[in-house]
Design a binder for these strands. Structure first.
Length: 803
DNA sequence: AGCACGCCGACT
DNA sequence: GTCGGCGTGCTC
């Protein structure tokens, strides 16, 4: 007897282990690790992943696998092991790890149904109606009709039964393909002998004769040959044609053509950066490279040529790009060089499209996957290189379970494939640069820009000074003059502001009341469109009040500036400027992102105004001015990475200016211009920033000097949340290494979100073998309460942000 | 997660 | 005496 170890799709602590099932003899050959199956679990059926095969089980009575869900493993052996590793590194359930590695379309969907098993005539009248022309009824429908008491009687009698159906969310897209039966002559004869009234059928046959006998989709046949469903059907009945359903891929780039590009000659610097990567590929050796190069130093060309080598050796490659940088411009570069060998995976695609791209990888039809974070799980079997562009980006860390960092996964996968990882950035994460300094990663510096253009001139404007001199506008005099100058010279500008909406908060001038979200401890943002107040955390909306809800004063005013307000102000002070605004609110519709960018690229606007999303990857030759309206917005957030993020963002944004023939200028407006993040970004001085920030981290015992873990507790009741957190903190203090620092508990920086109070506790440690098991115990201890009392506990090992 | 089992209060 | 509340524990 063969036994399968199955991890079932029930995300809970007690079910987080393999269960043994008997493999039916007929499937002994088919069922291998990585295949998904449907198994009886308690009273119902669930999906599960086969993680191993054995000859016997320790367990007494075994149930049998009910159904196969895959014919080829959904997860390779390597990915199964990786799942195990993820479970340990992120403290998540095995099933969550497995599901995270697959496209969302492959997640199981459960349908509860009542099916007719006995004779329909035995049913009472009220039920007989519902089962008159079907033998199944959905659970929801039964609920809606309030039929449970009579249903229950029938179930006891055995006329009806409850079944669970396990389905896949996404489907393969299939089209009807029409094939010709028989030789060309046979068809010709048939066409000749067609009765005169069957003109459509004759036309279809003639079409096949003139265009070869290759199969064709029914839709095309209708369009090109004037076929109709009726004519096709009769031809099929006559045995001249056959219908088949074949899988087709949804093609998200179907309507785009890509200009093929060739390798460019490398500069001497690029040569010396690529050489160690290539020898690593040749020697089939694992190594992590940190390619540290300023914007415009040609990192992408190095990636492309290294990948080219990998593909020529018959191996595959993964390229990770931050979600917001996964722009058409970026995709073009890879599609242009590698054409149809590329699969693209990003959030802009529909679930179905993502699934199709994934299938291409699984079937070995492509050699390269370009995508955001989750593309790191691309099911390649023979990886030759993994590239992570802009490796410092926080979007590589998943903020839900499993809370993995794509960089760690990449290194893990590259180890098992004995291949290099290339991390690229102009502003590496402090951890990465520190590791390069210690020789754990190999540093590949690219100091010069390919076109030898100097980095743009950056000036910092002290907005306090502006205010003192009577300028209350959001534009400093310098920025305004420069904007005007670009308009006159017909050059383009990019304005960056890290806040969407109209104003950041609304306050009463008489009593100081600030309008807050009723569900979260955060002020609401006014949105001009629809005159609404919105909460950016829970999406709560409320009308804008005309008077203060507290003191009924009418002096309520907007404070702080969002992109909408800047747009309005621009229209007032520079009426002739054409402005494109890009933020979550203007790009939520599919394709909007791409459309706005191409409009700007075609010169249909003078100013591109936007949030985060315009900071990366954009490369427009006519942009000669970049303005950062408020550089301090994230500088003072209670997060140990806020200086690093500010420096990275400013450097990143500055890189948008003067990338081509025209030289660029950057103006940074700030209320704390003396801060080292801003000063060193102005000088383009990463090394200086690194030194300075490292000493800050050392003082605060933060990474990379210490490892960090954060435990978060949330509950609708404040006392419950703080009480549980207090207990956990006590327990941690008693059971971890004496050198481990347990800080807190404290209320989270945003103490309440979606009506849940949040408390947290921070753990700083250098080496603590007890910590992980202790944290696991904590999860175990509160397991029931998380399920029953709406208690939320999350543990983040190596958090990217403390918010 | 679901679901059954089981032990205490208000009813035919 | 029973029906039904939801606390506890199990699912190969």
């Amino acid at each position: 007897m063969k036994v399968a170890h199955v991890v079932v799709d029930v995300p809970a602590m007690q079910t987080d282990k393999p269960f043994d099932y008997r493999i039916p003899e007929k499937w002994e050959e088919v069922i291998v690790p990585g295949i998904r199956v449907i198994v009886p679990f308690g009273p119902r059926k669930v999906q599960g992943f086969v993680t191993g095969i054995a000859e016997a089980s320790d367990h007494g009575k075994l149930k049998t696998i009910s159904e196969l869900f895959d014919l080829t493993p959904a997860l390779t052996d390597e990915l199964l092991k990786l799942g195990q590793w993820l479970t340990e590194k992120t403290l998540c359930f095995q099933i969550s790890a497995f599901q995270a590695m697959l496209p969302a379309a492959m997640k199981a969907k459960y349908e509860k149904k009542i099916v007719l098993t006995g004779n329909a005539e035995e049913l009472p009248f009220d039920l007989a109606v519902l089962f008159s022309n079907t033998d199944s009824l959905s659970w929801d429908e039964a609920q809606a009709h309030d039929l449970f008491s009579s249903l229950q009687k029938q179930m006891k009698k055995g006329t009806l039964e409850v079944v669970y159906q396990v389905k896949q969310k996404g489907k393969q897209k299939k089209v009807r393909s029409i094939e010709v039966n028989g030789t060309a002559e046979a068809i010709e004869t048939a066409a000749r002998e067609m009765p005169p009234q069957a003109s459509r059928q004759k036309a279809v046959l003639d079409f096949f004769i003139h265009n070869g006998l290759s199969p064709m989709s029914a839709a095309d046949l209708k369009e090109l040959a004037g076929a109709s469903d009726a004519s096709i059907k009769s031809l099929v009945q006559k045995g001249l044609l056959t219908e088949k359903w074949v899988e087709v891929y949804r093609d998200p780039f179907g309507h785009r053509t890509f200009k093929p590009t060739k390798s460019m000659p490398l500069t001497r610097e690029q040569e010396s950066a690529i050489a160690p990567i290539l020898s690593c590929i040749e020697e089939k050796r694992h190594e992590v490279f940190l390619m540290y190069g300023v914007t415009g130093s040609g990192k992408t060309e190095v990636y492309l040529q290294a990948i080219d080598r990998v593909i020529r050796e018959g191996k595959e490659a993964i390229v990770l790009v931050p979600e917001i940088a996964l722009t058409p411009q970026m995709v073009d570069r890879f599609k242009g060089r590698f054409g149809s060998m590329v699969a693209v995976l990003h959030s802009g695609l529909s679930t179905g499209e993502k699934y199709d791209e994934w299938r291409k990888i699984q079937r070995g039809e492509v050699k390269l996957a370009v995508g955001a974070r989750s593309a790191i799980f691309a099911p390649f079997q023979n990886l030759g290189i993994i590239v992570i562009d802009e490796e410092h980006e926080s979007s590589y860390k998943q903020e839900e379970n499993p809370r993995y960092h794509a960089r760690d996964v990449a290194i893990r996968r590259a180890e098992s494939h004995s291949c290099p990882v290339v991390l690229g950035s102009a502003t590496p994460a402090l951890e990465s640069f520190a590791r390069a300094g210690k020789g754990v990663y190999k540093l590949l510096p690219l100091a010069k820009r390919v076109n030898e253009r100097p980095l743009p001139e950056v000036s910092v404007v002290d907005m306090r000074e502006e205010l003192r001199e009577g300028n209350r506008s959001m534009f400093s005099r310098a920025l305004f003059e420069h904007l005007q100058a670009r308009l006159e010279r017909n050059e383009q500008s990019v304005l960056f502001l890290n806040r969407r909406g109209f104003s950041s908060f609304v306050m009463c001038r008489d009593c100081g009341f600030v309008i807050q979200c009723p569900n979260c401890d955060i002020s609401m943002t006014y949105h001009r469109q629809g005159q609404k107040m919105k909460c950016h955390y829970c999406a709560h909306e409320a009308p804008m009040p005309s008077s203060c809800p507290e003191c009924t004063s009418e002096h309520i005013r907007f404070f702080g500036t969002g992109t909408q307000k800047v747009e309005e102000e621009l229209a007032r002070v520079l009426p002739e400027a054409r402005v494109i605004r890009m933020d979550v609110d203007t790009t939520s519709r599919k394709g909007a992102h791409e459309r706005l960018l191409s409009q700007f690229g075609e010169g249909k606007a003078d100013i591109l105004l936007g949030t985060q999303m315009i900071a990366k990857g954009l490369d427009f030759p006519k942009v000669t001015l970049v303005g950062v309206l408020a550089a301090d917005t994230m500088l003072h957030l209670p997060d140990f990475r806020s200086s690093e993020k500010t420096f990275q963002l400013l450097t990143q944004v500055s890189g948008r200016a003067g990338r081509h023939d025209l030289s660029g200028e950057v103006i940074i407006q700030s209320y704390s211009p003396e801060h080292y993040s801003i000063q060193l970004a102005k000088e383009h001085h990463y090394d200086g920033f690194f030194e300075r920030e490292m000493s800050e981290r050392k003082l605060g015992s933060y990474p990379p000097y210490y490892f960090l873990a954060v435990v978060n507790v949330s509950h609708p009741d404040l006392l419950k949340a703080s009480g549980v957190m207090e207990n956990i903190a006590q327990y941690l203090k008693q059971n971890t290494d004496p050198y481990t620092k347990i800080l807190g508990p404290v209320a989270s920086p945003i103490p309440r979100i979606k009506n849940r109070y949040r408390y947290q506790c921070m753990i700083k440690y250098k080496k603590d073998d007890k910590l992980i098991p202790v944290l696991k115990k904590v999860m175990d201890r509160y397991q029931q309460e998380t399920a029953r009392e709406d208690l939320g506990i999350s543990i983040d090992l190596n958090p990217s942000s403390l918010m």
